[in-house]
Design a protein around this nucleic acid. Structure first.
Lengths: 223, 223
DNA sequence: TAAACACAATGAAAATCCTGATAGTAGAAG
DNA sequence: CTTCTACTATCAGGATTTTCATTGTGTTTA
């Protein structure tokens, strides 16, 4: 999972980042309107955590912008303002949820998880695909009800494939989502092959069909 | 693969037929209860797509009939009715899945594929053509019982030719079937020649006759 | 019929992908 | 702190897929 945190208070930004990173989420950050705007235009995120009180621009404009770009990133608005107006405005413009400062990091995470879950999988916390089952809340995977133990990367990979079922995903996009922008796009993606191989092997050995087709020169297509 | 489509709406019937035929599936059709009943009694299908709203009989009776004949055809019920009763009834009587109108053809196809896959899970599903044998469940090919090792594309190609035996297949259709949406608009089919060549070579070297005729300006004809 | 053209087949080479072995790393356990 | 273990990354090989250049074959036209 990959999120963008837009927040100008340095301390808070760092805590949020640390909290999510701890849980294995790829975090990118922006501390002002301009940076946020740029990153949003360039990348896709599972969820954008957006503080409305930015120094150089109106946060709600970002919401408008994201939706006008037809992007499907989840949006969680964070604000110190208690005004009902802002909240309604945000939701009207297409934000998915709203959180008022101060808040507990655990609540923040719960809401982000909820948004991502809703966005990708219709609110159920289980993904079903033929003989394959993935329980998002417990992060357990199974083939025909028989548990399969996946590593973090394998699990992330599987989730990514499942949430892009039927679509061709490029290795660039995969790297982008699973490793964030620490990784140079021009690098080669040998390590992806290995994770794909391991994931495939575990699923097939557990009795699943191999739904993953490689698309020569581009990436993969699942389902 | 061979399916029977039972549907009284002419337009829908034709679209479904076209969609499956394009993918190399053999399609037979019936537009009323009587025709369906007759075909079902006479032939075996991998899957029967059954619309419940027939003019001259109750579709669920067909399900009952198929099962009482101990036939193992897969059954996918299609209906405009949302009622849970119908769904449960159908599944109780032995249907394999249920689809409510309106639906996307892609979903229909996915469900049919799933049914057929389930049905053939441990049964050996073999295609036989003279000295040629293809085991679909294990994806193994043989000439006169002697195994021939094919690559994925070669295998796909062979299956496509076999399921369109006797018919002329265009290179466009081949590309569509073997590469689908993974490939952008293809203006160049050079790679098909290569795969055809490799497949031919392997089969002929294994002792099979060359059943593949090229059709100038269009594509190929197998058998 | 011969020439001109379009399509098909071929072999070789390049690009990409898969696999197994191996080494580095981080966290858990002792 | 050290060892153990599981995970991730890297690498080299071989396999697969695609591209390319060339040659061969069928079709049309003069």
């Amino acid at each position: 999972m990959k999120i963008l945190i837009v927040e100008d208070e340095y301390q808070l930004l760092e805590s949020m980042k640390a909290y999510f990173a701890e849980a294995g989420t790829i975090c990118e950050t922006a501390s002002n309107y301009a940076m946020a705007s740029e990153k949003i235009a360039l990348y896709d995120y599972d969820c954008i955590l957006l503080d409305l009180g930015l120094p150089d621009g109106e946060g709600l404009d970002l919401v408008r912008k994201i939706r006008s770009l037809k992007k499907k990133d989840g949006i969680l608005i964070i604000s110190a303002r208690h005004s009902l107006d802002d909240k309604l405005n945000g939701l009207d413009l297409g934000a998915d949820d709203y959180l008022v400062k101060p808040f507990h990091l655990s609540e923040l995470k719960a809401r982000v998880t909820a948004i991502v879950r809703r966005k990708n999988f219709d609110g159920t916390n289980e993904i079903l695909f033929n003989e394959l089952t993935v329980d998002l809340s417990s992060m357990k995977t199974a083939v025909n009800k028989i548990p399969v133990v996946l590593t973090k990367k394998e699990y992330d990979l599987l989730i990514y494939f499942l949430s892009n079922k039927g679509k061709v995903v490029s290795k660039n996009a995969m790297a982008e989502h699973l490793w964030g922008d620490e990784m140079d796009i021009a690098d080669d993606f040998d390590f992806i092959y290995t994770h794909v191989k391991n994931l495939r092997k575990k699923l097939v050995e557990a009795g699943a069909l191999d739904y993953l087709k490689s698309v020569y020169g581009i990436g993969y297509k699942f389902g």
